[in-house]
Design a protein around this nucleic acid. Structure first.
Lengths: 144, 144
DNA sequence: AACTAGGTGGGAAAAAGTGGGAAATATAAT
DNA sequence: ATTATATTTCCCACTTTTTCCCACCTAGTT
């Protein structure tokens, strides 16, 4: 199970090492896509096949005839990347994905059960604060 | 699987190199046609056979009016071109297809599962923004 | 202190992308 | 039919990017 939060560097060559704890589970190749919200999703190959099968109405070879389907597939596949993990556990993050979530020098890498999320470090800490506050409020509400 | 986005040049001879990552899957010959939306579709030979079979099959489930179907087929087949990939991975893009989608010096080449789309770079980034905005709504819609 | 493990950085080699000239083919003009 | 002109194809060369490998740094251990 992929859990925990790590802050890693993205160097000038767009390389980012994956947390050692994640490597075994992620395998040799991963799929990295824009996620919902301001982050990227990293899927294992297996996980991705599940996801993509669901998304792309697989018993319709002509899915491109439907505008909605076309747009969604463009969104999901056009902005995904299949990435190899190198011999020491690093991946390359394509520029177009870096740009999408405003990645610069450092990234927050977060395990979320069966996927990994990649955040701009600052945005991640904001997100955390937000979620914490909501959690506290929720807790109080529940305490009553 | 064809995924990801690449920006390539189209030179004065109408040559455009295909992303190295796509070449294996695309093979030696491809079919390039006007796509739906402001882009071109590139299919592998195999994929094209599937698509064209389905499209021309008169008892398919597309519930087109006959005239509509005729026109659509004219659109898809009449302007499709079979194109060879040269020894270093480039193709020639016919002028009439360039004109159709307003291609100039650079193109966005986008893998969408089992087809490739070619966009005017600027239009592609506009399209991305648009789809991004619609994505959540779309996801919900498709989830149904 | 030396060792190990995880993370970071950099140089050299290889691959990918781009451009341009010459040969081959096609098109047009005389 | 022949020459001239344009277009396409093939090949080579340059530049940039990517990949591969090795070295270093830091923190925790022996």
């Amino acid at each position: 199970m992929l859990i925990g939060e790590y802050i890693h560097t993205i160097d000038e060559k767009n390389r980012m090492s994956l947390p050692a704890k994640f490597r075994k589970e992620l395998g040799k190749k991963i799929i990295i896509t824009p996620g919902l919200g301001q982050c990227l999703f990293i899927f294992t190959n297996k996980e991705w096949e599940k996801v993509s099968k669901k998304l792309s109405d697989s018993d319709n070879d002509l899915s491109f005839l439907k505008a909605d389907q076309r747009n969604f597939n463009r969104y999901m596949f056009g902005r995904a990347a299949e990435v190899e993990i190198d011999s020491i556990g690093r991946i390359l993050i394509p520029d177009f994905l870096k740009e999408r979530i405003g990645l610069k020098n450092t990234a927050a890498i977060v395990g979320v059960k069966d996927r990994v999320e990649v955040w701009n470090e600052k945005k991640w800490s904001e997100e955390k604060e937000l979620v914490e506050k909501q959690a506290e409020a929720l807790a109080e509400k529940l305490a009553k």
